[in-house]
Amino acid sequence: MRRILVGIKRVIDYNVRIRVRPDGSGVVTDGVKMSINPFDEIALEEALRIKERGDADEVVAVGLGPDDTQQQLRTALAMGADRAILVRTDLAVEPPVVARVMLKLIQTESPIMVILGKQAIDDDCNQVGQMLAAIWNRPQATCASKVVIEGGKARVTREVDAGLETIEVDLPAVLTADLRLNEPRYVKLPDIMKAKKKPLDITDLATIGVEATPRLKILKYEPPQQRQKGVIVKDAAELVAALRQKGLV
């Protein structure tokens, strides 16, 4: 079976205004809306499209996190994933741990491809895909904006600082999704009902044999330095005069 594994992370919704807790221990999460990391949604959408084109047979959504991650995995199933696996942990897991968990699952699932989001919008690390590719000793194609599968290979267009780069990788490989790879589909109500019957297996870190030992201690969270609000100028002439006075134009 040609299988694709997709990583699904539960994060604070991108529309939520983030506030740092006064004691610096983290950010406020009580009563805050949680969602699938937007890049993971794009990764899942791509996996579904690859399957719909006939280049894969099964899409498996993998979550690593607290029990509530089941909500995001149910959404993934409603979008079209065939089944889901939750590796449960209440610890904050760092990218190397996520990579090791994925590698464990790769060993039992033997996917042709793993598609992840290029970064999570909470820790903004942009690390897991590359780390997984390294320890799996397989190719990586990060920041993908176009994917074409052909004869055991993937041709991937990547968003890079210079513009668009295209590389070819042998499968299996790790891909990470950038914003413009696709536009994820909306979930329809019947799909939500159907998703309830799809398999969602729950395991935990200890069972699959991965330790979550942190490599980096987080000492504190701080709010960023705020910019001072400036002035409203009345017209273009006043703006240009102000910039000229500062030597900016």
Binding site: D123, D124, Q127, M131, L216, K217, L219, Y221, E222, P223
Partner: peptide, 29 residues
């Protein structure tokens, strides 16, 4: 691995932005 180091506090300690820059964390290896 520390992404996006914005300041070095010591040889093991760094500050970096998270949540699209809405919080800054200090991390230590």
């Amino acid at each position: 691995h520390v992404s996006d180091v914005m300041s070095v506090e010591s040889a093991q300690r760094f500050r970096r932005p998270v949540y699209a820059g809405n919080a800054i964390v200090t991390v230590e290896a």
